[in-house]
Design a protein around this nucleic acid. Sequence first.
DNA 1: TTATAGTATTGTAATCAATTCAATTTTAAA
DNA 2: TTTAAAATTGAATTGATTACAATACTATAA
Lengths: 140, 140
Amino acid sequence: MEKHADTLRNHGIKPSLTRMLILSYLTEEGSHPTVEEIYKALIGTIPTLSKTTVYNTLHLFTQKKLARAVMLKDQETRYDLAAHPHAHFQCLECNTVYDTSAFPQLSAPEEFLKHTVEDVSILFTGLCQSCREKSSHIEQ
Amino acid sequence: MEKHADTLRNHGIKPSLTRMLILSYLTEEGSHPTVEEIYKALIGTIPTLSKTTVYNTLHLFTQKKLARAVMLKDQETRYDLAAHPHAHFQCLECNTVYDTSAFPQLSAPEEFLKHTVEDVSILFTGLCQSCREKSSHIEQ
DNA sequence: TTATAGTATTGTAATCAATTCAATTTTAAA
DNA sequence: TTTAAAATTGAATTGATTACAATACTATAA
Ligand SMILES: [Mn+2]
Ligand SMILES: [Mn+2]
Ligand SMILES: [Zn+2]
Ligand SMILES: [Zn+2]
C-alpha cells in the first residue's frame, strides 16, 4: 500500500485512501476497468464512495500521466495504467480486450513530423481465438 | 451522383437519395464529420431528414464496410470513408484531425496472431504545428 | 488546542450522444 | 392496384459523463 502512496507522490498526487485504492485496483485487479466497475469493486471497502470521486480521480490520474483512457470500441471509457505502453486487441464478438507485452514497432509517418507527437494509440480488432473456435464448432 | 449510386450498390446498399447525399458529404465535403454535422449540412436539401436516419445510415455504411467510425479523443463519433485506410493525428489543443496519405508500416504483434485481426486503428496525439507556433509566439 | 484555509469527497441535477421503437412513408414486386 | 418489404421519421428513453454546490477532511498557524 505504501508502494501506491509513493507512486501517487511521484506523479504529484497527494495520496488519499480513495486514490490509493483506485490505483491498487488498476494495478492488481481488473483489466481496463470502467468507472462503474471500479465503483462497484470499491463501494464495499469505502461505503461513502461517490461515483463522481471515481471520475475525478481517473481524470486526475490521466492528467498526471499515471493512467490513460484506452481507446476502444466501447461506449464506456476504460482505463489503464500508463506505465507500460502497449497496444490492444479487442474482440468484436465478446468484447474482450487483450494486451501486447510490448509496443509494436511503428514507423512514424513523415507527414506528422512537423507536429509534436506525444502519444500513439494502436487498436487491433477482429475475432479472438476463443470466439473463432466457438463459432467453428457451431457451424458444422 | 450516379458514381455514388454505384458505390452503394457495390457495397450491397440500395441507393436512396438520403444515402447518396450522405455518401456525397463523406466523399466531398467535411472531413471526419459527426452525425450532427451531417444532419445540419443536409437538412436544407432534405427538409424531412431525421437524425435517426443519419444514425441508421452510418451504421449501415459501417456494417457494409463503406465507412468506419474513427477512433478519436472525442465524445461524438466521427466517420470516415473506409476506402483508403490511414492513420490519424489529433491535436489535443485545437482538436483538428490530420490524415496520413498511407497507412504506417506496422509489424503485427506475435501475441495477436492466434486471433483473427480484421482491422487496425492508429491514432497519434499531441500538439499540431499550428498550435505549437501560436504558443511559442505567446510565451516570449 | 482551536481557528482557518485549502483540498477532497459527496450527491443531485443537468447534459447530451446514442438508441429504442412504433408509426408513417416510400419503393418495388405481384 | 394490392400488398409486402424496406426506409424514414420523431418522440421517448437510456446511460455515461459533467456541473456544481454542499459537506467532510487535512494540515498548518495562532
Ligand atoms: Mn491494456
Ligand atoms: Mn481520416
Ligand atoms: Zn471473443
Ligand atoms: Zn492544434
